[in-house]
Structure formats: C-alpha cells, structure tokens
Design a protein around this nucleic acid. Structure first.
Lengths: 239, 239
DNA sequence: CCCCTTTATAGTCGCAGTGACCATAAAGGG
DNA sequence: CCCTTTATGGTCACTGCGACTATAAAGGGG
C-alpha cells in the first residue's frame, strides 16, 4: 500500500463542514441550514459542500462561509481546521469524507440563504441538537476546541468587532466557558499580556446604557497567551 | 452546494500519512520509507496509504502503523489525527487528499519493510529533510503538535515503556522540546499532578549504569495536566 | 578500602501570578 | 440627591515554580 497503484484505491467524495460560531445576546450561536433533500430532509445541518476540483479544503471552507453568511469579505475571519470525519457509515448514500472547520464571527449578520433556496438560521448552541449526519459531534468538537484555545491563545478577539471593551471580551470567555470571571482580575490578566489588546486612545463607550463608559481596545499582534488564562470556574454565574 | 448532487462533486483519492515518532538514544526519530516508484522514486517519505472502501481514516492509520512497524499489537499506541492536507498540487499525478496522523512509540523495534519490498528506517528528526510530497510540512506539524501537547497533557508517557523512571520521563520533555529541565523541579511537578504517574512499589532500576537506582513508575489514569507544565527553557543543554 | 564521580531524591528561599476581596470613579434613573 | 450600574484601581494572601543546596546510594579508579 505504499506506492500509488491505480488499482489499489477507491474514489471518495470529499466535503467540508463548517461550525460557524458567534455570540448573540450573550449566548453562543451556530449557523445552521435546513436540508431540502434526502437524506435528513427537513433536518438542520452544518453548512458545507463538496470540494471543487481545483481548490483546497481551506478554500472550499472560505467559499462556503461567504456563501452562507452573505458576507462580502470573509478574509479576516478566523477559520480553523478541526479534524476529518471519515467513518464509512456517516452518509447513508455513499462514502463521504468530510473536513470540518470552525469559523468565528464577531458581529453576526442575518444569513440569507445563499445561492440556493434552503433556509439558514442562527441557532443557540444549546438548542442545536439532532442535526443531520454526524454534525452533532462535529459541533461539540468545535465548541471543545474553541473553549480550549481561549485558554492559551488570543482567539477571543475573533468573536469581537474591531473595537471592543474589556467587558465584552470577558463576556466571550464567560459565554464560551459557561463560567463567571472576576472582572478586576480578568482586566489585570489581559492588560498584563503584551500584545493581547491595544488601547484606542481617547475612545470610550457606554456598554449597558448605564454605568461608567468603558475604554475601547483593539486586538493586538499577539496570538498566544503565556502564561495561559486557565479555566478555574467559580460556582455559577451570578447574573 | 448544500445538498448532495451527483453531478456536483468530483471524486478524490484519500490517503493517510503517518508521522511515527519515537525516542532513540536521546534523540527524536521518525519512521521513514523509501519510495520505490514515481513520483519521488528513491526519496524518503512518511509511511501511509490509501483508505480501503470500508474503513475510517483512523482504522487505515492503525493498519498502516502495524504494517510498517511490524508490531503485532498496536492497540495501545497513541495515535492522533493531525490535520488534513488537500492542496490541489500536493501529488503531481492526481488529486489526493491526505489525512495525517501522529503516532508515538515507546521502545522502537527495527522496522521490517512490511508487505512490500521498500525499505523502512528510523531517521533522526533533524536529518529527515527533503521528504517526498509535502511530508516535510506534515512532519514539522507533527512535532509542533506533540511538543505543545506535552505542556498540557500526560502524553509524554506514550514515549515511555510500561515502566519507566522519572529521569526517562524527563528526557522525553527535554528531547522533544530541545531544552534542559531542572531535575528536582520536574520531579516535584510530576508527583504533584494526581494521576500522572503511579509508583511501582519496591521497584528500582539503574539507569546510566552508575549512580543511585531510580524508583520505577507507571503511567497513571490522568490525561490532562492542570495546571500545565510550561515550556520555559534555560539557555542550552549542559549535556 | 577510600574517595571521587554520577545519578536520584529531599528540602529551602524568594518571586510572580492569581483568586478573593475592597474601594473609588463615572455614568443614568427615580 | 441618592441609588444602581458599570468600569477601574488597588490590597492581601496563597500557590506554583525557578534557582539552588544538601543528602543518599550506586560504581570506578587509585
């Protein structure tokens, strides 16, 4: 099996599946599409599609992401390969190998159905169950991966718009992890990490309509967090 | 592209590629095979092969691992999916999508050539350059991944035999990371992590032929390291 | 046999990071 | 004018860890 023998291999269909995650109203949401055909007709599924003959999985994922979200520019968005799902029975009709990606969006636009007529919708993560194929597992893997990478990378800013407050950044951690963080300590940790965030001079913004206006920051050049921001939860969210 | 349309997709060849890593004589080694056919005939490459019609990528990887190493039982070995490489030009003859894995072996057996006649050899990591296809990159990604997982998981024991000393475990970190660690501090950290290692009662072994015999440990049930064992190197290796 | 080297193990000291607090500043609402 | 809300600044103590010293247990060379 070491050399390539034209009689030795079977052709497979190769697709990409996308777990497009965002934060809406303080809750993690995922972009789902309603399937119009069998199998799993009428069921919700992760967006995705087949690789074109001359594109890589990353290119296919970014193309699908643009189609499904309707965003004109998806070049700045965080797109990350999760893993590949290749169990023989995962598609009841034929052998499909799927490369899964996680995409992180800041401000979520309302999805339009893309090129075809199927409906696309932002769904709270907790309500996204019973998806088609093995998409429940892919979605769970995406959340696990993103939650873990929040600990030791600067990934959290990918959920935020270009300018954000530290309270909004903290909400990213609290929402994805499902835990409450101490605000002064979070602030101290973020500001002590060189290159995580950069202050926007003179800018301040009211966040909840009340209270002192918060300073505004931008994402810095750093990508990793040393030392990491460990997930050590208090009991529950007081809010 | 959302539904499956039989006219909408191209079939691809799907392979698995394995970065089989081990420690020999205090250096990281990788299992390479010599290619017997074009393209890249005579060049060294990572072992791998095509998916069979009724197996997953994980099953194919474990099958290839058994064939290439000649080990009868590869069920206990650590096998981990790295990522999938799908750039259109990565195989000059046809479109091949490859799912890459990293495998970690404790005591390295001499490889026999497996089912076919091509040569297989353990090669020091630093000398494994100029591999066929994009295998240089896959191998580099494997080392990066393994090095990172040593920080926050108990993966290091996968490089050790069933019973090992703390000095041998420390050598795993030092070899993969290329840094020197303080022996008492390493010992304190490992023993303070519940479930990382378990003492084998009454067992002791001479390691270098000289010096005090070291206590013997087994891998414990823990899989993650909280808090992590951060890579903060001293200048260079004194040895 | 003694001493030196080598390896393993035990312990100490001080600093950095952080969790748990408390206090103050600056906004809006009644 | 006071209360609530949010942001920000600071303290204190504990933990984990890097750096380092000391002791124990083996073999080697004279």
């Amino acid at each position: 099996m070491r050399g390539y023998d034209k009689r030795a291999f079977e052709p497979f269909a190769v697709t990409v599946d996308l777990a497009v995650l965002t934060l809406r109203a303080g809750a993690l949401h995922v972009l789902l599409v309603e399937r119009g055909q069998e199998p799993y007709a009428g069921r919700w599924a992760l967006p995705g599609g087949f690789l074109l003959p001359e594109e890589s999985a990353e290119e296919a994922a970014r193309r699908e992401l643009a189609e499904e979200t309707g965003l004109a520019d998806v070049t700045g968005l965080h797109l990350e390969q999760l893993r590949t799902y290749s169990e023989p029975g995962r598609d009841p009709r034929m052998r499909v190998v799927s490369v899964a990606f996680a995409a992180l969006l800041p401000d979520p636009p309302e999805p339009h159905g893309g090129g075809d007529a199927a409906e696309a919708r932002w769904t709270p993560y907790d309500e996204a169950r019973g998806l088609a194929f093995d998409h429940d597992r892919i979605l769970a893997d995406a959340r696990t991966r993103v939650g873990a990478k929040l600990e030791y990378t600067c990934l959290a800013t990918a959920f935020c718009p270009a300018e954000f407050t530290l309270g909004e950044l903290q909400q990213v951690y609290e929402t994805v992890w499902g835990t409450a963080l101490d605000r002064p300590n979070f602030r101290r940790k973020v500001l002590a990490t060189p290159g995580f965030v950069e202050a926007v001079p003179g800018a301040a913004r009211l966040t909840g309509g009340r209270g002192k206006p918060a300073a505004v920051y931008r994402a810095g050049p750093a990508t990793t967090l040393h030392p990491p921001l460990l997930r050590t939860p208090r009991e529950g969210r007081p809010a």
